[in-house]
Design a binder for these strands. Sequence first.
DNA 1: TCATACCGGGG
DNA 2: GTGTACGGTATGA
Length: 790
Amino acid sequence: MRADNDVHDEWLWGWDATPGIVSVWADNSGRGTVWRRLGASGALVSESVTFRPWLLLDALHDLQHLGSALGLEGDASTKFTYRELKGSGALRFLVSGPDSQSLTSALFDGASRRLGRSIKHIRDLDENTALMLAPEEQYLVATGRTYFRDLRFNQLRRLQFDLETTGLNATVDRMFMVAFRLPDGELKTIESATNDDKGEAQLIRELIAIIKDADPDVIENHNLHGFDVPFLHTRAQKLRVPLQLGRTSHRNLLTRGSRRGAPSEFDRSRRVRYVAPGRELIDTLDAVRRYDFSARDLPSHGLKAIARHFGFAGPEREYIRGDQIFHTFQTDPARVRRYALDDVIEVEQLARMLGGAAFALARMAPRRYERLADAGAATGVIDPLLVRAYIRAGQALPGFAQGDGTTHTGAALHLFATGAAHRVVKADVASLYPSLMRQYRIGPSRDTLGAMLALVDRLVEQRLAAKTRAKNAEAGSAERYTYEATSAAMKLVVNSAYGYLGAGGSLTRFADVHAANEVTRRGRETLALMCRELAARGVTLLEADTDGVYFAVPESWTEADERRIVAEVAALLPPLVQLEFEGRYAAMLSHEPKNYALLTYSGKLILRGVAFRSSRAEPFGEAFLRKAIAGTLVGDVVGVRDAFMQTISAIRNREMPTHSVSQKVRLTKTSEQYLDVRESRREISYEALLSAGRTRWSIGERVRVYRTQGGGASVVEEIEDAKDAAIRADNRDYDAEYYVRLLRDSFAARLETAYTAEDFETLFSDPRQPSLFTVNIARIHPILTKLSSA
DNA sequence: TCATACCGGGG
DNA sequence: GTGTACGGTATGA
């Protein structure tokens, strides 16, 4: 008998060594195609495969009518065969046939007769009666194959393309340009010769020819599934141009259901994503969302903002506002070409930077790469792994369980003090929930194989190994990249194991709210223990959330003292729960739970939470707030007062550029819709557009608006660079007193916890309303208030 | 005014 | 074929 570790590795990685699979396609005929890229030469081979389509049933009664056509597995004389699986799970018969059409029609005949209603689709049956995977997943589970074995990310042939169109609505707007980055790095654009059906149809044919010629394994773009592919599909349908984007003979794209897809053309209530068999359509927006789900540090999910955030936007990067692109093309087409090529260049870098996790997942889970790129980690990755593990082990799969009404309980959140604190330390437990699951062996009760905990154990162990290998590999090397991506993917799966437990019973087969509650209970217990033991060692607790604590230490302590007490408390926790010294800060402004500012020892200010970060905030207020928080945290109260006075005087003297007082808004009504309701309710955004002479606009457009003297409103051009705003001439007819009030009531108000009420009044008093007292700002000190409730 | 429904992106 | 999260804004009772 083999060691558990070998079995568990098969559950995680599959068991078939076939290398280089870059795409798999199968249908219900029991035939499929596997495309592989050969390591040494990089050549592509396409292999036809056959497999026996299979499904799981709770009983054989719906197939009894087959008589002698149904036999035990291994009986070569019968068309359909079955095998009974071990254990107590509900889905205990693995039935297979030569093709899934005849298999399902036999099943539907029997089920229709038994139930007295017409069963036409597997979803018409109860989920505890039958389980059938997509054809290519049946193939991958049965064979133990996975994508990308022994293949590196940079061995994939990846192509990026980006459509430039006259607008966002594919039923009325047209494509006029396509920018490409070909797999070898070549950049090119193609354009329609004429702005009519003929020109656009020819453009689509050229696009297809270029893709066919480059023959990429993967096609990438930002919002590919939300914009480019659906747009292309609609235009091609309209112009009756065949859209042969894949490697098979299908003359058009196929669809699959997807929560985040485009509305289906046949049933508007269903959302679909398009599929080009043989190629994987990868949307970098999915990778961005998945990344930001845990990182939570992206200013927006738009391509340009992300490229700037990660620092790969070139210095010469061309920017054109979306609604100006076609217009610009007519007068300066070269500029639009540069813009479109910059898009595909950035997409390639973004895909390389964030796409590795999905690439690594595709080496583990029995699903297509493009499905793993947009799947949720719980139902999208863990479920297929568990299903494969059960089939491999010959174990019956459990059915879905009805909840018993128990609700899911959450994590602990404590705010111990508000205001300004100094010498702040953050300590936290890395991957708290999976650690607790492993430490206390908390897994789904119906997982009789123990597959979930076995997978989490293997993932945590192998992730450590992958991290070490990444560290040892040369910086920037493909090897390093692969190990980092593997580590990121493993972290994603490990962290969603807990989410899987807590998901409602209707979503996942193994969901177990009692187990999830046991994890959070242990988590709250662990956090309480950490807080208690830290406080006992003389620190001032500030905020504790789920798995980490911020606290302030006495003035006399050194960094070594800080690390020593974290180590002391860490030693009190169970071995698999590892408390780490996460960072130290010169000061912290604790405002509200999950809303705080940190000042690093190198003088960098970090703002967290909605109170301090808002995309619509007026730039002058943001700038003031940063100065005032920094001043407060270093004890320069005079500097805070100066910043306040200077901001007020710049507003009143109209030295403040209009851009700085404006607010970014997103339009949600069309011009027609607003004009209908204008008389009953006026809204600043639309009034601003009207007064600027604009009578037409579209939903989703973003503009900057401000309040003018006399209660009106106006718009100001969006400017990327703040320095640009200062030198730009504008008429500065903003409502100065409104913005002075906003400065105090909205922005200065976020410093309220750092001062006594009286000092706050003094510090942020209007210089035009002289106080009865002569005030000495210099005597004011920021305060920290301990809260008794925590 | 408060609860709920919907969005995030793309030209 | 199923993301379920998270904060913001828009909309309806």
